[in-house]
Every structure is written in C-alpha cells, then in structure tokens.
Amino acid sequence: MDLLLDIASAVLLLTGGFLVFVGGVGVMRMPEFFTRMHAASVTDTGGAALILAGLMLQGGLTLVPLKLAAIFLFLFLTSPTASYALANAALLSGVATACRNQTGKQLPEDRMDPPSAPNSENSLAAEAPAPKTVARKSAKKAAPKRPTKKAAKKPAKKSAKKAARKKS
C-alpha cells in the first residue's frame, strides 16, 4: 500500500518540481514584464499545489497533512491575489507602453484606460528613464533580427546584460 503512496507522491513531487523549474526558466527567458509575470504566477500556484499534494500523501494520518492543507489553501488564496495586484500596479505605472515598444507590435488591450485611479503616467515612465530608453534601443536591435527563436534570445540576453551593466 505505501509503495503505491510513495510512487504517487514521487510522481506528484517531481512534476511539481519540474513545473516550478519551468516557471524559473520562463521568468528568465520571457522578453518583457507581463509575460514574465504570467510565467511566474501560473507555475507558482500550480507547482506549489503539486508539491504540497505530494507531501500530503507522505504525511500519514498525523497533524502534518492538515498543516500542509493550510499552507496550500493560504498559498492558493494569496499568490494569485499578489500577482493580480502586482500586474495592476505595473499597468497603472505605465509599464504597458514600455512593453509595447519591446514586442514591436500594438497590443490590442493597450488602449484600455485603467480604472478610476488616475493613470499617474509620470510615475514610472519619468522615474525610470534609463531602462525604458535602453529597452527601446534593444527592442529595435532585437526586433529586425528575429527569424529564429535562438537568435532573438542571444541579443535580448546581451542587451539585458548591457542594461544591467549600465544600470549598476
């Protein structure tokens, strides 16, 4: 019986681990903020659910599975809220315009004006001039040379490294 449990939890744990790893790679590889956000938040919740479920099977009938269920419930509630709130704050601060230039095409929902709070356009745009201009420059360089996925990855990574060096 417990061999079955072991196998089930092993499967759950390893898939959870892989999902979490995919999230990490996604955060590194995605070109701009909102897609990174997407990669991180989906795998956050998914990976956590699988790993915690795998551990629950191992917990036996003690208090441990109950604690794991509490953690799972808490993560299940808070991590999407946190991601939503972060994305909303980013949208409010005008990150969307910066991202549109990076991906080079007009995102349809870009024109959606944010809810009642004033779109304090000046805050991030004015506040972080360096990254935006750098983003635009690297976007122009990255955009034309985009025939293969790997090629896009190399300049994006190089410009990102340049941005980091310029920033620090």
């Binding site: 999230g23 956000m37 956050d44 991590s79 991601s83 972060l86 910066a98 990254p131 990102a160 980091a164």
Partner: peptide, 14 residues
C-alpha cells in the same frame, strides 16, 4: 538584472 522595478518585485514574490 530585472530592468524595471516591477521585475524585482516579481522576483521577491516568486
């Protein structure tokens, strides 16, 4: 590395 500040907040959350 994250160019914008929100990348850093995302990193902390993750």
């Amino acid at each position: 590395m994250g160019p914008t500040i929100f990348d850093r907040v995302l990193a902390v959350n993750m």
